[in-house]
Nucleic acid binder design. Structure first.
Lengths: 346, 346
DNA sequence: GTGAAAGCGCTAACAC
DNA sequence: GTGTTAGCGCTTTCAC
């Protein structure tokens, strides 16, 4: 039923030229007579020719595909990958990463293949895929700082770029945010509002980004007369933000300003405040982090520290592309600047 | 620097056998002397051999990759794909789809490559990719019922499976939920609770699933003495749920039970109820739809109609795999049954 | 049970 | 400028 797909050979015969010429036209290589080009183009049209990627990859040794790896640190408890995937994508952060990555790849007709590396076995599979040339390189987004994947990738000398700095340095290119500066912006915002009892719901302290945000916030507060501020730890989920805030307000009812280390938790803070009859921002000012979709959806709309995730992800793809093409050999580190977005919550 | 990757030839030389034998061992084809198998296996180990996928694909005409296409209906306004991606993934639904798809593909060492088809041009690119053999087939999740992609795919006779029924029938395999039964379950739940003034925040009426859920709900209510119930339309977002509920309660303050056509909107209903000082479920019972992560995160936890998205997605992948392998030729339609999950909101 | 050999469809030297 | 040719690394008949 499905007859053989037309090949370069077929087009060449149709156009009365050689395969090489057709190939040149298809790949836009110069040095082809415009008249011939036209003839070839028509032959392509007539035959409905589409180049076979596998054949091309075999000789170019490139497949125009990069792995987008969402990586955890799990090594003992093998979590069902389906649950892992669902959990991961429930954070708006990943949707933004995907958007940014695709915005770079698509104009270059490259595509991301999705992989999860939440267990030791899954990590080996990712490495195997890369070695087999299923993808030209990897974009790695780790959910844990101790993720062993980056080191494995570096060791295998496979092209890879990381989103965010791992806890232990790895000789791979990476993009990251100046989280410390972000913490500072949040502090300054609360200070400007005149908050007298600031506090923070920080992210998991195992994550370097959390620690940096916290440090930036604390340092700034310390320099402005608040040497010791209440700190409660959340897990970057709305639920954990709610729980943390409950603890915070129970122990420190005087708190009148909270910096939550991401928007999901900031939403949780607002939620608790509302339940307790505290007005946001009048009784309790709230500053989030990320400026993800929830920042706008939250009530009131969140004042937050913007992390340009899409741009960062696009840059990550750019770096990887450079490594793959061989125009960059040494790892690069690109740090983005955060930005305060003022809305209603502070 | 990076020396040539070992090939079948290298392994064969090491093991003192022919390429054909190594190939048989690698692919687990029977008829190979166990002793030789062992020798070959060791040679593979020593050389660190990994089969080149491109070379294999060239002869098998299969690339062990499927496209996971998130498709819109846009044809005039070209939306930035990055925004499209972010928006799409902000719905927990897609994370579940990804999880289900991956759970089927991974054990078969297949992978999903992510593609977005929100514009006419993007759709053509998807078709081109498939024709070029970048993927063996497509799993299509449409955000609009009028999405032209399924028809294009069918016309090009490319292997594809749809999640949810398109508004116009297309000769492609598909998985779907019995949405009408879901609406019925929601109605029965509210009825059992003794609700006297039920209403619904339905989904976009352009989406067949929304219409079916609404029909199932209405019919059941009608059969139980509620021939006319208030209906307000949302857009499946929390925000739209909030706005719809505000309208609903303004016009029908007597309402004491709401069926929201997804969990995100149900959360919005709860939110408004809380703001107005109405207790859920005592003053206002709320039933959601999907049983996504937010159902549990919501306060109170949502009673909801469960849609087994992960299983549906996995089945979609299974059907596609069968089409690709040629063991299925005629399109199949698999309909899943919804299930009521009782929690606190109704 | 194993090996020899013929491609799969393409790109890239290298001639002309 | 264009054509000829030699592979890229693998699977798969077909002999033996």
């Amino acid at each position: 039923m499905s007859r053989r797909a037309p090949t370069l050979e077929d087009v060449a015969r149709q156009a009365g030229v050689s395969r090489a010429t057709v190939s040149r036209v298809v790949n836009g290589v110069r040095n082809v007579d415009p008249a011939l080009q036209e003839v070839v183009r028509q032959a392509i049209e007539r035959t409905g020719y589409a180049p076979n990627r596998a054949a091309r990859s075999l000789v170019t040794r490139r497949i125009e595909t990069v792995a987008l790896v969402v990586s955890g640190a799990g090594d003992t408890s093998e979590e069902a990958q389906s649950a892992f995937a669902s959990r991961v994508f429930s954070d708006p952060f990943f949707g933004r990463v995907v958007g940014g990555v695709v915005s770079f790849l698509r104009p270059r007709s490259m595509h991301p293949v999705l992989m999860f590396a939440e267990s030791a076995q899954a990590r080996q599979e990712v490495l195997a895929c890369l070695r087999q040339g299923r993808a030209d390189g990897a974009l790695v987004v780790s959910t844990h700082a101790d993720d062993p994947l980056p080191a494995l990738l570096a060791e295998a000398r496979l092209p890879a770029v990381l989103f965010a700095r791992p806890s232990r340095p790895v000789p791979l290119s990476q993009v990251d945010l100046d989280h410390r500066a972000g913490g500072r912006l949040a502090a300054e915002c609360l200070l400007e509002r005149g908050c007298r009892a600031p506090a923070t719901v920080c992210g998991p302290l195992a994550v370097p980004a959390s620690r940096e945000r916290l440090a930036g916030f604390r340092d700034t507060m310390a320099r402005h007369g608040h040497p010791r501020i209440p700190v409660v730890e959340g897990r970057f989920t709305r639920d954990s933000g709610i729980a943390a805030t409950a603890r915070l307000l129970a122990e420190h009812p005087e708190v009148d300003g909270v910096f939550a280390a991401n928007d999901l938790m900031a939403e949780g803070v607002c939620e608790v405040a509302r339940e307790r009859g505290r007005r946001v921002p009048d009784d309790l000012a709230v500053v989030g982090f990320d400026d993800s979709g929830v920042a706008l959806a939250s009530r009131p709309a969140l004042t937050t520290v913007r992390q340009p995730v899409e741009r960062m992800a696009a840059d990550m793809a750019r770096l990887l592309d450079e490594h793959i093409r061989g125009v960059r050999d040494r790892p690069a580190s690109v740090v983005f600047a955060p930005e305060l977005v003022r809305r209603a919550s502070a």
